[in-house]
């Protein structure tokens, strides 16, 4: 993909694959792996935000973890600031980890319940050997202020906070070392509606002030539209459509994207929209359908969709779709 805005790519993922082998019985691995991520390519420019949407099991979280090499990729390239991360050893990865951080979905599970907030937030500095203990103490206080908490919170334990506050601590930990890329894996899905808005606004402010790029993973189309510059829709381990967010939401091409958009209820109009009926469930990734993976649920499928695998093709500048019927 060419760089038409003159900004360098911060992250570029080329043909990333992650296959998990499954045990057929106690001794033998099955021949058919689970193709969790099956040939995904995209790029994020410095300071920009890419949204990754799809239903559960489509591989969006696996893709995120593979990029950070929390899960080892099966094949493909992950270029971070032009450097391929895949062949690096864990030791070589360590300094790069300063620059790429992750926020998890469940703030209750992602913070150590036995450590005080101060300890949780000092840990990144300790690991990377930054600053003296006095500096660190000051840094922690600044971080808490940045995410809308106060320095007194530093001496408390995670169980003393509400979900929204815990997510703020998770965010503080992620931005502690001034990363250039933050992967946010469903950061607001576990939160109540009124708290969701607080956290999204916080992320937005941090993005503007600290010039952080985000890979924002969510199943909520409205949240993604609000937060992201560019959006990729995943289905069964593959990207089926990727475009700038305005373009994707106003002019979706893939029937799957259309279906996802049609089921968002509009509170404003108070009217029931006609759901684009997508029948059935997401198929199993061990045994994906032949041809286009979506053909089993697609409302407009034709015979050839059952046999031909559609390629991701550019239909308008920057707008890519993988659908045989919608590529022209």
């Amino acid at each position: 993909m060419t760089d038409n805005l003159g900004k360098p790519n911060l992250l570029e993922v080329r043909n990333l694959k992650k296959h998990f082998s499954v045990k057929e019985n106690f001794t033998r691995n099955s021949d058919e792996p689970i193709r969790a991520v099956d040939g995904v390519s995209f790029h994020i420019k410095a300071g920009k935000t890419l949204g990754l949407v799809g239903e559960s099991g489509c591989g969006k979280s696996t893709a995120a973890r593979t990029i950070l090499r929390l899960v080892e990729p099966t094949s493909g390239e992950i270029l971070f600031k032009g450097e391929n991360l895949v062949p690096l050893s864990h030791k070589e990865m360590q300094p790069l980890r300063r620059e790429m951080q992750i926020i998890f979905q469940d703030p209750f599970a992602s913070l150590n319940p036995r450590k005080r907030v101060r300890h949780i937030l000092e840990e990144p500095f300790e690991i990377h050997n930054i600053g003296s203990p006095v500096d660190r103490k000051k840094q922690v206080e600044e971080l808490l202020n940045k995410v809308g908490l106060s320095p007194e919170h530093a001496d408390r334990f995670p169980h003393e906070f509400s979900g929204g506050q815990l997510q703020r601590i998770g965010i503080a930990r992620a931005i502690a070392l001034n990363p250039s890329l933050v992967i946010a894996d469903e950061p607001v899905s576990a939160l109540d509606v009124s708290i969701q808005a607080q956290v999204i606004n916080l992320l937005q402010t941090l993005r503007e002030n600290l010039n952080i790029s985000f890979l924002f993973i969510s199943h909520d189309m409205a949240v993604v539209e609000h937060f992201c510059d560019r959006v990729a829709v995943m289905y069964l381990g593959k990207i089926v459509e990727i475009a700038d967010s305005d373009q994707l939401y106003q002019n979706p091409r893939h029937p799957y994207t259309e279906a996802l958009l049609s089921v968002i209820p509009s509170i404003e109009s108070g009217q029931r929209k006609q759901h684009l009926l997508v029948k059935g469930d997401i198929p199993s990734a061990t045994n994906p359908p032949t041809g286009c993976a979506f053909h089993t649920r697609c409302p407009i499928k034709e015979k050839r969709c059952e046999t031909t695998v559609p390629e991701l093709k550019e239909v308008e500048p920057g707008h890519f779709v993988a659908c045989l019927l919608r590529e022209s």
């Binding site: 506050q165 606004n201 409205a222 509170i267």
Partner: peptide, 24 residues
């Protein structure tokens, strides 16, 4: 109602969501 992002809200220039301060 206001804290839920609406489709097209950002296109209309509404960058920040209206939030309810504090916690339940």
């Amino acid at each position: 109602k206001n804290s839920i992002p609406k489709l097209g809200q950002k296109r209309e220039g509404d960058k920040h969501l209206t939030e309810i301060p504090g916690n339940v």
